[in-house]
Design a protein around this nucleic acid. Sequence first.
DNA 1: ATATTCCATATCTTATGGATATGGAGGTCC
DNA 2: GGACCTCCATATCCATAAGATATGGAATAT
Lengths: 311, 311
Amino acid sequence: MDMEVRHLRYFLAVAEAGHLTRAAARLNIQQPPLSQQIKALENHLGVVLFRRHAKGMALTESGEFFLEEARRILDGIAVMEQRMARVAKGLRGRLAIAFTTSAAAHLLTPRVLRLFRGRYPEIELSLTENNADEITERIASGTLQCGFLRVPVSRPPGLVFRTLLREPVLVAVPLDHRLAQQPRAGKNAAVTLKDFQGENLILVRRAGAPGLYANLLALCAERGIHPNVVAEVQRMMTNLNLVAAGAGISVVPASMQHVHAKTVAYRPLAKSIHLNAPLTLVYRAADSTAATAFFVELVTTTAADGGGTRS
Amino acid sequence: MDMEVRHLRYFLAVAEAGHLTRAAARLNIQQPPLSQQIKALENHLGVVLFRRHAKGMALTESGEFFLEEARRILDGIAVMEQRMARVAKGLRGRLAIAFTTSAAAHLLTPRVLRLFRGRYPEIELSLTENNADEITERIASGTLQCGFLRVPVSRPPGLVFRTLLREPVLVAVPLDHRLAQQPRAGKNAAVTLKDFQGENLILVRRAGAPGLYANLLALCAERGIHPNVVAEVQRMMTNLNLVAAGAGISVVPASMQHVHAKTVAYRPLAKSIHLNAPLTLVYRAADSTAATAFFVELVTTTAADGGGTRS
DNA sequence: ATATTCCATATCTTATGGATATGGAGGTCC
DNA sequence: GGACCTCCATATCCATAAGATATGGAATAT
């Protein structure tokens, strides 16, 4: 015979009732089968658990030992069931989330993570930083659950790209650059597309893929303006590092204007230029995990509430 | 459905094999019932434990959580079974032992307890001191397992009285007593029965019950000697306290000769007087407890080996 | 495309947990 | 002290559910 949880439950009932008949009633079974199960348990353990006398059943010394053990194990099982119930509800789990450097720069991102941790403390967040390409791929493959990025570079089927917000873009130039010196014609006068003519431009993009910079180049091309593309990098942070080093100018979402603030100047673009940077949440449409749903829900509502303080 | 240990064992096998078919083979069952049991478990927990793909079964995240829990519980059960195996062998338990003050005075008693503790460290000894009457009664009622006493005062059926050893008795007298002064006629000349004539005698006995003192009185009566019984007490220690206080004289087993050594003199009895003090082990004949058997066995062999150094 | 592997489903068998009926042992009450 | 009562054990029977057998479908590899 193998011991089963049933034996423990039955034993405990008898031990607590001190009475086979009463325990059987409490367990909603009849007395004889209970008698047999107890006996089977005693056989299995090689120990007599109860002294049978005319007024009921009393634990033997071995029974007392076993009582402790049985309680311990049944308690353990109860704890397990509770924990698994929380797992089932999605209140316990793991959630792998990634963001691009520029998405991480927007205040919405840290804010939403803090909120989530507070509300679902038993969901362990695994956070990584990566470029939009890899994030998209890893979400599709199931390695990641959610990602924050700017303009989607590819749109594999089955992925949801939810635009959380749009923010202006700024032109980032080295402090000693011509465009950084300009604010006299009217206090921070906007940069126009013409200003890009002949400039060394640093891009963040993958060749052939759409994105913020693809849009910018398209606008320039429309007007016959041809900037001089001196570098294409993977991350916007690298981008700004190069600007800070004086390698050229670039364009970034407004929320990055505090990066390298001592060495890079950020100038607005002219209103006529319809170029803005979205913040996008990516996840699998088929992901039925409760944790993911909680996260998507929290991100969406937080963004709708004015998001990351519109900075 | 109720969760049973079987489910945990099956789950663990599948999780470790990563393979339903292989796990089934390892469990000596077929694949379909295993499939069903796993599914039943998933139903019960409200969680999907495995991702089924063409090369086997891989744990989901919930499955990983459950793996920890299942291992924890199965380990707990294994520990329990081991402990109960030791209980079954009698290596773990409780043993209630009592002795009279005079039995405790014999070196065999502490010696055997020390030996026992060393050999069976998981058997908890509960030690008490009491008079022969109560010890006998409590062993009969099952409150105690073993007792050490001198001469049995009653012999309820079902109790075994095993004589471990016999030792001489000595006459205990106050230091300033006539009999204490005597050792000049031949260096510690023995006390005879005649010496008891008219003496104040202190007894340890229950009226009507046999015992060391009943034997002594019988011997005296045979020869027409009538000591003056001034007290009947419950414990031999009380007895000696009274002798030390000068209330009278008494007779005790030789092993007690170090009690009140500063105020009581111990004198041998004449060889012709056939009076000695046994040390007796009492236990229930029907006591099939291994721990009791171990104890009885150890006491018997220790006593046979020369016992408590014959002091 | 074919074959193979592995899990799921459907049906049947069997082992066993549980129900019913009865007996025996130890207490209690009159 | 005898009749009754309570409570557990034993014996037999039934029903449920675990397990076996047979088959099908999905995914991967050849």
